[in-house]
Design a protein around this nucleic acid. Structure first.
Lengths: 258, 258
DNA sequence: ACCGATGTTCTTTTATGAGCAACAAATAAA
DNA sequence: TTTATTTGTTGCTCATAAAAGAACATCGGT
């Protein structure tokens, strides 16, 4: 009696989806040959997968360079996706006013596995090079939002983070268990999280928890900006505003703190 | 010798994509049985398609009600999709300032087939029931943005619109060729387009063209609001601002009008 | 606790998708 | 321009993966 349970995933569908996931901000146009190499499939297979994807509007061919890019069907679905999150709706006005008050870009993030995902982003007036975008994933341990989520959720996330291992993005990146535990403890006592050049050089972020009506931390608000503007002097005042924003969203979700 | 050319689209992939496209703002959570009925497939087939989609994060199961909804993989791809459009980046700040100046919600729209698709949306402060969202499709002939695109593009779009037929959304909806031609002519002479209760009762929109460096109209800016605020008195002043916004975006795209 | 409805698993058969190879098309090089 | 080289699409075949139906499990309601 072999214990292997049957795997009922459809390989062609899986391949099609893997193709879609290959598209990224950095590589937004892909060629058949490259995809075939990446996914270890035949050119013809990929070609046919692509025309199927194209027929439903999930990709389209750039007529100029023959390459494929994501199609508008994706766009139509994205709003449906975010609308699933009640937080999203409640958070938007708060994020906007946070940006007005601080002058920095703000995000609403949730935890997906061991990564944070940015559900929403409100840009500041400053033209800064964008490191994030809606839907972007970042490892939780390296971001302020992520540390919030790790700090206020089950310890098992810490274990799993350690298992997965740390990538050192900068000199300040947390790279082992004890550093992480210490950081999370600090988050819990202070009620907010900082990330000072822990993932990008010269970039600082400040995050605060968002709680649902049960008091559980389900999301995080943050602001992000360059060190020049987010420094020892300004961080304390901005932090207050971020924490306040977190509380406001939490209250809109039915959380009562007393 | 039958002239039918072979169809190389992969049916399982096609079914998976059709499933994804079934999700909408109105029906954001779907059940296996319903999907099976809708798509005329077996329950077991849909079940396996869904688990494959779920394994790649394109859908996820709502633990509360056993239903499926769109997953975060979709979200990650959406920004990649919009970033393909150079207009998007250039238009954003202009849309924001248009919203500030007019107090109404603003969209950037492009034409896809015979529909307009909203590439971007900036909400006004007013809490109005949302009729649109990023990625939403609307028939071109019934919207101000769409009329802009039809007015400044090849006549063939008009023919195809007539072929596809008109749906009467309201009393003011354009429902035949001559009405459409007259409306488009007016758009061309005035340089902007109005939609006064042509698609939703009580809703008015004003749109202006956006041109690329060749002078071709590739997109449209609009504002949307309720009749109470967008009326004979305010429309003229708002129109100027919308047209001005269109020009600004066009200039950012390298268009020079002289 | 029962019943009805919904989702998942199992197995079989047939249709289908993957791969190879040839062809077409586009790009680069000469 | 012509030639060479890379890249994408099509034809065809066979192994196999996908669809269907039925049985089993699970859930939700009464």
């Amino acid at each position: 009696m072999t214990t292997e349970k049957k795997d009922y995933t459809l390989s062609s569908v899986k391949n099609a989806l893997r193709i879609l996931r290959r598209f990224s901000m950095e590589e937004s146009e892909l060629k058949i040959t490259d995809l075939a190499k990446d996914l270890d499939l035949g050119k013809s297979t990929v070609s046919r997968l692509m025309s199927t994807l194209a027929s439903e509007g999930f990709v389209e061919k750039n007529p100029d360079n023959q390459r494929y890019r994501l199609g508008l069907s994706i766009l139509s679905l994205a709003s449906v996706c975010t609308s699933n999150f009640e937080i999203h709706k409640e958070a938007m006005p708060v994020l906007h006013s946070l940006v007005e008050k601080t002058g920095e870009t703000s995000h609403l993030a949730i935890l997906d596995g061991l990564d944070v995902i940015y559900l929403h982003k409100v840009e500041s007036k400053h033209h800064v090079r964008a490191f994030t975008h809606i839907g972007k994933r970042n490892p939780a341990y390296a971001t302020s939002s992520g540390k919030i989520m790790l700090a206020y959720n089950e310890e098992q996330f810490v274990d799993r983070t350690v298992e997965r291992g740390f990538e050192q993005f900068t000199n300040n990146t947390i790279t082992n268990r004890s550093q992480l535990l210490k950081a999370l403890k600090e988050v819990r006592t202070k009620g907010y999280a900082l990330s000072i050049e822990e993932i990008f050089e010269g970039v600082v972020s400040i995050a605060a928890p968002v709680r649902d009506y049960t008091g559980q931390v389900i999301a995080s608000v943050n602001i992000v900006g360059p060190m020049q503007r987010l420094n020892e002097r300004t961080i304390p005042v901005h932090t207050k505003k971020v924490v306040e924003a977190g509380k406001q969203i939490s209250e809109r979700l039915g959380y009562r703190s007393f």
